[in-house]
């Protein structure tokens, strides 16, 4: 595999990561959301493997594998179980309407390109052009957490943000040191478990996972 094709594949996968990020932003169904998240993980994992191959950094294979098991198989599975157990609505409620969210997403992409243009000009790596995409993915994840009302969609938004960070690490510096990465992976896993437990408690306490309900938690005047 020569370097040129690898770089092209890399940017192609970056485009798909961005696409899945947008897909999650506009997806109305809970299961669809989880599937898109899994797809994003898959693209990320393949991308990491390719970057690892072309840069000759073999520890990236491990993180690729880690991504695959954690983000493509384990976390989606947990979320699936969660959704099934909690009998969540299949339709996700949104705070802002969807076409407007799309436009905001596009604006974020342009903004992150604008921010990253000078940075990627300094970098010499093959993957430098995907930096903007990575930043955009992080921001879109955050936007998703803002525009959604459901706790499960918020956790997916959080995980998507983490995907973006991971992607940024791969494209900016060919990945973080393995130790850090393992730690982060563990964190994510634990976070997901804690979230899961919390959700059970929230849903028994409020009979709903709508985060708007939590607005009631403030002190009455």
């Amino acid at each position: 595999m020569d370097l040129n094709i690898a770089a092209q594949l890399n940017s192609f996968l970056a485009a798909f990561v961005l696409l899945t990020a947008f897909g999650m932003l506009v997806q109305r169904r809970m299961y669809g959301l989880v599937h898109l998240f899994a797809w994003q993980g898959l693209f990320l994992s393949i991308n990491t493997a390719i970057v690892g191959f072309e840069a000759g950094k073999h520890h990236l294979y491990i993180s690729s594998l880690l991504t695959l098991t954690l983000k493509v198989i384990l976390l989606p599975y947990i979320l699936h179980v969660l959704i099934r157990r909690l009998k969540l609505h299949k339709e996700v409620e949104v705070v802002v309407n969807i076409p407007l969210t799309m436009l905001m997403g596009i604006a974020l992409v342009i903004f992150s390109y604008y921010l990253m243009a000078p940075v990627s000009r300094l970098s010499t790596l093959v993957t430098r052009s995907t930096l903007a995409v990575a930043l955009a993915t992080v921001m879109i994840g955050l936007l998703m957490m803002i525009t959604r009302r459901h706790a499960v969609t918020q956790i997916i938004g959080f995980l998507a943000m983490e995907n973006g960070l991971f992607f940024a690490a791969t494209s900016a510096t060919y990945g973080m040191p393995l130790v850090v990465e393992l730690g982060v992976a563990l964190d994510i896993l634990i976070a997901a478990f804690i979230f899961g437990i919390f959700f059970f408690h929230i849903s028994t306490a409020f009979d709903s996972l709508d985060v708007e309900q939590m607005a009631r938690l403030k002190e009455e005047e």
Binding site: S11, A14, A15, L18, L19, F22, V26, I98, P99, M102, G105, I106, V109, I110, Y113, S129, T130, A132, V133
Partner: peptide
């Protein structure tokens, strides 16, 4: 049709960003 617009715009953006 908003998604169609989104896809086309992403195409345009990815041309500038990635290619």
């Amino acid at each position: 049709l908003g998604s169609a617009f989104l896809l086309a715009t992403l195409g345009m953006l990815s041309y500038f960003i990635l290619e």
